[in-house]
């Protein structure tokens, strides 16, 4: 593909994708690498992380972002090499499903730490590098990965997850408002069903898979390009005048209300 589309170009940008070794994070990291960006990916599991980084062509940084130490390790590793950060993709997250009567308290603690607190503190700690990239013509970009489960009530019993992802969406708007004057945009992508480990239990079962596909107005599971395309749009010149938006990339699921 010839790189004539400067409107959507992210070539030469420096990008961090958390949870970039698999699933949606990997789709986004791979899209940015193919588009010519320098990409750092973080994950907790070193072997999987190193394999993904070598395969995709990313720089690997091992970090558990639910902890202050993990956040610090990632920020320090990137700061050691880069004088600016153009795009931060807060993707790392977890889910938890259990019946209402048995829903465990530690699920709330875990999901709050990784899905909400991790996003907030990583963004906070990366602000100096984001500010170094930011200009009114070409803002620095923060892209948070929310979920369609944070927009409409899901069928599955993942109470802490849906609540945490709704929290990510609101935090996106709050940070967008606060950081707009500094030329840092903050937007969220709310994915529907994609091929990820989080979805593997459902998509691996043919009956359940076709049931899920049946709920998607566009009639299919999301593909890697669907996710990479949305992230690249938000990170490129094309997405420069957008902040505080929550974009469903869900095949139309959120139109059910």
């Amino acid at each position: 593909m010839l790189s004539a589309m400067s409107l959507f170009s992210v070539a030469g940008k420096t990008v961090v994708v958390t949870g970039g070794s698999r699933g949606i994070g990997r789709m986004i990291a791979s899209g940015f690498v193919d588009a010519g960006a320098t990409v750092y990916i973080s994950a907790r599991k070193k072997d999987e992380l190193d394999a993904a980084a070598a395969e995709l062509g990313c720089v690997a940084v091992q970090a558990d972002l639910s902890t202050a130490d993990g956040v610090g390790a990632l920020v320090e590793a990137v700061t050691a090499r880069e004088s600016r950060l153009d795009v931060l993709v807060n993707n790392a997250g977890a889910t938890w499903g259990a019946p209402l009567a048995d829903y465990p308290e530690h699920a709330f603690d875990k999901l709050w730490n990784i899905n909400v607190k991790g996003v907030f503190y990583l963004t906070q700690r990366f602000l100096p590098l984001l500010r170094a990239s930011a200009s009114p013509e070409n803002p620095a970009r923060v892209i948070n990965i929310g979920s369609v489960d944070g927009l409409r009530v899901p069928e599955v019993e993942n109470y802490a997850y849906s609540a945490a992802k709704a929290g990510v969406h609101m935090m996106t708007r709050h940070l967008a408002h606060r950081l707009a004057a500094e030329s840092i945009t903050v937007n969220a992508i709310a994915p529907g069903p994609f091929e990820s480990k989080m979805m593997a239990f459902a998509l691996g079962d043919p009956a359940l898979r076709s049931a899920i596909e049946g709920q998607v107005p566009l009639g299919r599971i999301g593909r890697p390009d669907d996710m990479a395309g949305a992230a690249i749009y938000l990170a490129s010149r094309a997405g420069a005048y957008l902040t505080g938006a929550v974009i469903p990339v869900d095949g139309g699921i959120s139109t059910h209300g």
Binding site: S3, S6, S9, V10, A11, G12, A35, G36, A37, T38, G57
Partner: peptide
């Protein structure tokens, strides 16, 4: 002409 945009060379 941006022929190698973003390519690590």
């Amino acid at each position: 002409h941006g022929l190698l945009n973003g390519k690590v060379t």
